[in-house]
């Protein structure tokens, strides 16, 4: 049991004239070791939800349980140092969070805060750079001289250096080029599948995450309106439009084909490759 939200509400500027409810009674439950996607229209509370996973925002009411730490609304929070080590959070536009004067220092910031020696931190920095497919020569550069895409990758690497059990990312692929986007999603998938980490990704491009995610959460106006597997999501896809999300192309495609050929019992093929193989299989077997 990795993450459980029970009737979690959050208000910005609580107790003032400007208070704004961002989440109102969110319930969700995520097992460890899964790759989860979070979708929702703009302003549905996705970013707020993510910041609760490591206690950056504390619930106004309700209970958030992450690993073995519980945060209750209205109560004083326990020390969150350990939680932050185990839950890595990559914010939206992560390139805005770089602040040191070299890439290496920025990458070492996290590990050093969590008590690793400088040597070990540097070692981790190097590994994270390699994981993100960045050239090691960038380590000595000033992060503000990097290109937008490189800055973003460095920022994600800076969270990977902490070796978190749960990795939470807020639209990590936005503004990246298509190749980097695909690579990043594959890397995150690998972190989940091979290292057994829990990965939670907020995305506006459901299509790129659909082939990999095994759980989906859909938010609408601060409420969880859907939580379940991809299969369940496909079944309920018609509801999505009322939540301000266009039905992803891959789901539309799969649905129209599976209805026609009666594939509803099969595992959905949601990537272009899987789909083309399935169609090839169909074509070959029926001797068209």
């Amino acid at each position: 049991m990795a993450i459980t939200f029970n009737q979690v509400s959050y208000e910005y500027d609580a107790n003032s004239m400007w208070s704004q409810a961002a989440l109102q009674g969110v319930n969700l439950h995520l097992e460890s070791g899964i790759l989860a996607g979070v979708a929702g229209a703009t302003g549905s509370g996705k970013s707020t939800l993510l910041q609760m996973f490591n206690g950056i925002l504390k619930p106004t009411s309700g209970t958030v349980q992450v690993l073995d730490i519980t945060l209750k609304g209205g109560e004083k929070a326990p020390k969150l140092h350990q939680l932050r080590k185990r839950v890595g959070l990559v914010f939206q536009f992560p390139e805005q969070q770089l602040f040191e004067d070299t890439v290496e220092k920025d990458l070492c910031f996290g590990p050093i805060n969590f008590g690793y020696s400088l040597e070990e931190a540097k070692d981790r920095a190097r590994r994270a750079m390699e994981q993100m497919g960045l050239d090691l020569s960038l380590l000595s550069r000033n992060p503000f001289q990097l290109s937008g895409g490189q800055m973003r990758k460095v920022a994600i690497a800076s969270v990977l250096t902490m070796d978190p059990e749960i990795l939470v990312l807020d639209e990590p692929t936005a503004t990246l080029d298509p190749v980097s986007r695909a690579e990043l999603i594959q890397l995150l998938h690998r972190l989940c599948r091979e290292d057994g980490r829990t990965v939670i990704i907020v995305t506006h491009r459901m299509d790129e995450l659909l082939p990999f995610a095994n759980q989906w959460i859909v938010l609408h106006e601060g409420l969880t309106v859907f939580q379940g597997t991809v299969k369940a999501l496909i079944e309920q896809a018609d509801r999505m439009e009322s939540y301000g999300i266009t039905i992803p192309q891959s789901i539309r495609y799969w649905r129209s084909l599976s209805e026609k050929f009666g594939w509803s019992e099969e595992d959905p093929c949601l990537s272009a490759e899987a789909m083309s193989k399935r169609i090839a299989h169909l074509v070959n077997s029926e001797d068209v």
Partner: peptide
């Protein structure tokens, strides 16, 4: 807001201003 984003990101990397 920009300062707050950085502070939040730093808090996530184990340097919480409050602690």
């Amino acid at each position: 807001e920009e300062a707050q984003i950085i502070l939040k990101a730093q808090a996530s990397r184990g340097a919480d201003l409050r602690e």
